[in-house]
Each structure stands twice: as structure tokens, then as C-alpha cells.
Simulated scan of single mutants.
Amino acid sequence: MTPTEGAPAPLPDAVEDPLLFRLAPKSWAPYLQLARLDRPIGWQLLLLPCWQSSALASASAGAAPRWADFALFFVGAIAMRGAGSTYNDIVDRDIDARVERTRARPIPAGRVSTKAAAAFLALQCLVGLCALLSFNGFAIALGFASLAIVAAYPFMKRVTFWPQATLGAAFAWGALMGWAAAFGALAPAPVLLYAGAICWIIGYDTIYALQDVKDDAVIGVGSTARLFGDRVVEAVGAFYAAAVLLAGGALYAAGVGGFAALGLCAYGAHLGWQVVQLKKGGGAQAPGALALSLFRSNRDAGAHLALGLIAEAASRALAGG
């Protein structure tokens, strides 16, 4: 964004000049930043496992993609990504004030009070609840179960070097939800997809955390980027390999192939490309711009798998299962 009088300070990892910020009243800008609407990659990465799981369920049943569920997951992902980010900023306001990348966020910068942020959090949760209540009872209960992980996440960096694992458990939850919304139950296929998505998220969030390694070390908070150190390329590669193998297991358990297998191959190739680029860029010493770019590219990686599954479901439905 180009700073203008009264405009919010652009955050380091925000997209440039987002349309929503130009259209919305300037007084809304700090709340849009709290919801990370200037960084859509967050809700996109939260949404993709939901769509993958829903399409996997449809393909397994020989049915067309459940487009109404896709729309509900879209609304829910934006609302709950915003709610989770707002909650995280409330909890981490003192830490954010001491980290270069986050000190300009609305709460530590003094542009939103903690009380106002809490009210905004409640509003976003209400939107997410409306989307969740549109599903069956099992999916509703499963959705509520994820809140314990979401609530714990901001505190994990204070007690462990593995906050990325907790983030993975939360962000991958959609890999269970899509199947649950279709069948009102779980099965090995979505559980394998969920495990693979956790590995994927640990990998890409480790890359993201490379931006904060120096500040995190000074403050004394943990991350897998700090833990892996000079072995970060090998560690990310291992998690990405596990993500592909587990996703392949999910496809096998669901009895799908064809377009889904092509999507899986494209997904694996993209993750492999990221590892190569990370190594070329210096691994643990990779510039922040490279780390952010590779992190953002996971939207495309996850979309490859989702589109393969959607195409497989659609083709099976057209062929009569």
C-alpha cells in the first residue's frame, strides 16, 4: 500500500494495495488488518484442506462436488481465520511489540484497544458459527472440537519449539470437516489426509518462521525454524515428503485415482520445487523475501491437489460413479 494521510501502516507481509482497503472506510482498516484481510494467504491455506476433503468424499462416493459445502467452507475459513488471528494478536500483543515484523500490528501499535479487538473477535466467531450450524450434527461437534487447539496455539511458542505442530493440527482440521460434512462420520481416508496436511503445514510454517528467527531468539520464543537451524532444508523436505505420502494414502483409502492422482503428483512436484528453492536461497539464512514468497506459493501447491480431487469427483459423477 502507498501510505497516505490517515491510512494504516502497511505490514511487512501484506499484499500491495488490497482492493478491500481502498473501498472500505479508513476507520475499518485496523480491523481488516486484525482479520488479516490484507494477507489472504491465511484463509486460503485454511480453506484448501476443507475443499480437498469435501472433494475426496465426493470422489469416493462417485458424486458431484458439493458446491454448497464449498461455499460454506469459504465463508467459514475467512471468518475463522480472522477470528483466530484476532485472538492471537490479543494474546501476543506484548511479544508482537518486540518483533520487527509484527510491531506495527493494530494492537501493539495502539490503533485498536484490546476491548475493541475482543468485540471484533466475537463478531467473527458469530459469522463462523452461522456457517458451521449449516452442517450435520457430527460435523458441528467436530468443528467445535477444533477450538481447543486454536485456543492453545498462541501459547505454544512460549513452552515448546513446536508451535508449528499445533498450528498444523488447527489449520488442517478442514481435512476432517469436508468428509464429515458429506458423510456425518470419519474414516481412514480423511484421517490420513489430515495427518498429511499437518506435515504440509509444519513444513510451510517453518519456512515462514525463518523471517523471525533472530527476533524469536532474543525474545526467547520457540519455533521449528530455530529448532532445525542449519538442517531446515532437510527437515522441511522430510515433512513435505510425509505430506505427499500420507495424501497418497488418503487417495488409496478412498479408492480414488485418475485426476486425483495427477493432482497429487502436481502437489508433490510443487513441494519438491520449494525445497530446491529454499536450498538455493541459503536454507536457514534464506532472505525474508524468499521465505515469504515460498510460504505464499503453498496456495498453488494445495490448489493442485484440490483441483485434482474436484476433477475426479466431477468425472466420476458424469460417468455415473
Rank of each mutant, 00 (worst) to 15 (best):
L210T: 15
G62S: 01
L72I: 05
P18W: 06
I201M: 09
A29P: 00
V150A: 15
L167T: 00
I201D: 06
A266F: 05
P154T: 11
A241G: 02
F295T: 08
P25E: 11
A175P: 09
L245W: 14
V233Y: 04
A253L: 08
T224W: 04
G263S: 12
I310E: 06
R39N: 01
G248Q: 04
K157Y: 06
R316A: 04
L47Q: 03
L133T: 12
G168F: 04
A131Q: 12
A313I: 03
L48R: 08
G263D: 13
E100N: 02
F21A: 06
V221Y: 09
R98V: 03
W179F: 06
Q164V: 11
Y252S: 08
P108A: 10
R22K: 13
V233K: 03
A303N: 00
W28I: 01
V236E: 05
F239R: 07
L186V: 15
G308W: 11
R22A: 15
F70K: 00
G263L: 08
G82H: 06
Y240C: 05
F239Q: 14
A195E: 01
L294A: 03
G220D: 07
D89H: 01
A119K: 02
G237Y: 11
A247P: 07
G283M: 03
T160I: 02
L167P: 00
P3F: 10
S315A: 15
A254S: 11
A165E: 01
R103G: 01
L292C: 05
V236P: 09
L32C: 05
A118H: 08
K26H: 12
A253M: 05
L47G: 01
A118I: 08
G272A: 04
L176V: 10
L20T: 02
G320Y: 12
A311C: 15
G128H: 03
A97H: 10
I219N: 06
A286I: 04
I207L: 14
V159P: 08
I41F: 03
A314L: 12
N298L: 10
M177K: 07
F21H: 13
D215K: 05
S113W: 06
L129D: 00
A266W: 10
G257S: 15
A7D: 15
L32H: 02
A122C: 07
D300R: 14
A269I: 05
L292D: 02
